[in-house]
Design a protein around this nucleic acid. Structure first.
Length: 501
RNA sequence: GGCGACGUAGCUCAGUUGGUGAGAGCGCUCGACUCAUAAUCGAGAGGUCGGGAGUUCAAAUCUCCCCGUCGCUACCA
């Protein structure tokens, strides 16, 4: 059975969930749901990143222990993903015991292989960045990112010999065209590697809130190097070799372009240093922009996903975010765009189609859904829609996939307008038309379900289908002609009530 | 400064290896219809594909230069 291990980044608990986090997670969730429809063995992971000085200090300021501080925010992420119908199989926290075990195992292997060595580091350190800066990187003596004073620090550090992997990383990206998608980001990673890689500091003695370095008391691993390893932890690295071997070759990481360097350069090098192959595949998306600015730098990130869910519903929010922002480039995000997309695609097209089909069946077919015709003109449309939808999901392009699925909806509306079954006398001709429309809807429900799972389940039941839409198996379930006919169909509330501006 | 990306209809964006007269959705205008959530269907207006030059029988698509936006990176005599 095909297998896929999907991950989102683990989110740092210094920040509460916002639309940017939701965008990343939704893309991964929709892809995971698509693969479940295909019958693939899926493991979908998300979680929270909880170590580091920033958390330690926030805890002190709030009069809490670090773990209490982490608990507070971690649960917010968990609640948000429940609200958004995220179908993750696991939620990892870097403060869990299983993770400490895996981190120590992986980095000990790298150490034993000679890729980690001790050295002294001193320089200007920004607590917010958790990074050192050279003097000329500072802006008027302040951190160039946070514009806040830096601290002079000096400590014994363990360094990861990143420079030793430049050639192997370059070869990997050159030889593996689909290692990083979309393609532009593979070029960026190659560019980073070709510009030269410096060894990097991966431990700290100045803090205690982290995973201890097992071979040297007093050191903890720098938060980034502990965090990346979560992906290995969750599938049993260091604890269950058989399980790890099962999932690791199927690893796909979903991430935003801001963390491309850590994921697509440092992480593969760490894996190679520990003797772990094959390397994962990476799917990188751009930023959501508000008036051209990165989401996290503007006030909009104060908008919690819950607020948008309150207005558009879970499925409305999911659909609009996935459909309107193609995976890869930066894209504009606005409330107005969400509203427009909701009304046109969900209320006017999908929801309204369900509504009118059910009504006509009630009025013209005695409330019993007729079977479709094998040679319906919609059959070829449905076949094409499936093919294009499947291909787009396979390429990690939810917006393209949904566009392809929605073409079947539009064509079905067109088909009804062309045939005008509401003008006919009840009989075989009306039955044939409505059977075709119901069959098209059956297929739409399945293909749309990764983006709008709840509404698709409702529509599935509304048209008289048994079982769960999410348990259908593609590609067989998308083949034309399977609507059984004979089911009772009634009226119901609109799936997506039209919203006023 | 170097590396890289982007700049296509009012808006958001598609446009594989260059090739039927440049596309979609939304918005807009007009018309049709009335089963449906003032939804739907049809028709239409609207673009010198950032600017210029070049290669080619043929370029939005390749090459060079310029302008603009952005990211990464290195830094000034």
């Amino acid at each position: 059975m095909p297998r896929i291990y999907l991950t989102t980044p683990i989110y740092y608990v210094n920040d509460v969930p916002h639309v940017g986090h939701a965008y990343t997670t939704l893309n991964a969730d929709a892809v995971a749901r698509w693969h479940r429809l295909l019958g693939d063995d899926v493991y979908f992971l998300t979680g929270t990143d909880e170590h580091g000085l920033k958390i330690q200090r926030s805890a002190e300021e709030n009069g809490l222990s670090p773990i209490e501080q982490a608990d507070r925010t971690s649960v917010r992420f968990r609640e948000t993903w429940e609200l958004l119908d995220i179908s993750n199989d696991d939620f990892i926290r870097t403060t869990e015991h299983r993770h400490h075990v895996a981190v120590q195992e992986l980095l000990t292997r790298a150490y034993d292989n000679g890729y980690i060595e001790k050295n002294v580091y001193e320089g200007a350190y920004c607590v917010s960045c958790e990074a050192y800066y050279t003097d000329d990187e500072l802006v008027e003596g302040n951190c160039p990112i946070h514009k806040r004073p830096v601290e002079q620090m000096s400590e014994d550090n363990y360094f990861f010999r990143l420079s030793a992997f430049a050639d192997r990383l370059e070869a990997w990206l050159t030889d593996t065209p689909d290692a990083i998608t979309p393609d532009g980001y593979r070029n960026e990673a190659l560019g980073l590697i070709r510009q030269g890689l410096d060894d990097v500091s991966i431990s700290r003695t100045s803090i205690t809130w982290g995973v201890p370095v097992p071979w040297d008391e007093g050191h903890v691993f720098y938060v980034w190097y502990d965090a990346l390893i979560n992906y290995a932890t969750a599938v049993g690295f260091g604890a269950d070799p058989e399980r790890f071997e099962t999932w690791w070759p199927a690893t796909h990481h979903v991430l935003g372009k801001d963390i491309l360097r850590f994921h697509c350069v440092y992480w593969p090098a760490m894996l190679l240093a520990a003797g772990i192959e094959p390397l994962p595949r990476f799917h990188v998306h751009g930023f959501l922009l508000v008036g051209g600015e990165k989401m996290s730098k503007t006030g909009i990130n104060k908008i919690a996903p819950a607020e948008l869910v309150a207005d558009f519903g879970v499925d409305g929010f999911r659909y609009a975010l996935l459909r309107d922002n193609s995976f890869g480039p930066d894209s504009e995000f606005s409330y107005e765009a969400l509203l427009g997309r909701y009304n046109s695609d969900l209320a006017n097209n999908y929801g309204n189609l369900v509504q009118r089909v059910c009504t006509v069946v009630v009025k013209q077919c005695g409330g019993v859904g007729p079977p479709p015709r094998p040679d319906s003109p919609l059959a070829v449309v449905a076949t094409a829609a499936y093919r294009e939808t499947a291909e787009a999901w396979d390429r990690f392009q939810p917006a393209v996939a949904l566009d392809a699925t929605w073409r079947l909806i539009r064509e079905t509306n067109e088909f009804l307008a062309r045939n005008e079954p509401w003008k006919m006398e009840p009989g075989p001709e009306v039955d044939a038309i409505m059977g075709d429309a119901l069959e098209a809807l059956r297929i739409v429900c399945i293909l749309a379900s990764p983006a709008v799972p709840t509404a698709s389940a409702t529509a599935w039941a509304r048209i008289g289908m048994d079982g769960a839409v999410g348990e259908q198996r593609l590609p067989e379930a998308a083949e034309w002609g399977q609507y059984p006919g004979g089911s009772a169909i009634g009226a119901g509330d609109p799936l997506f009530p039209r919203l006023k501006a």
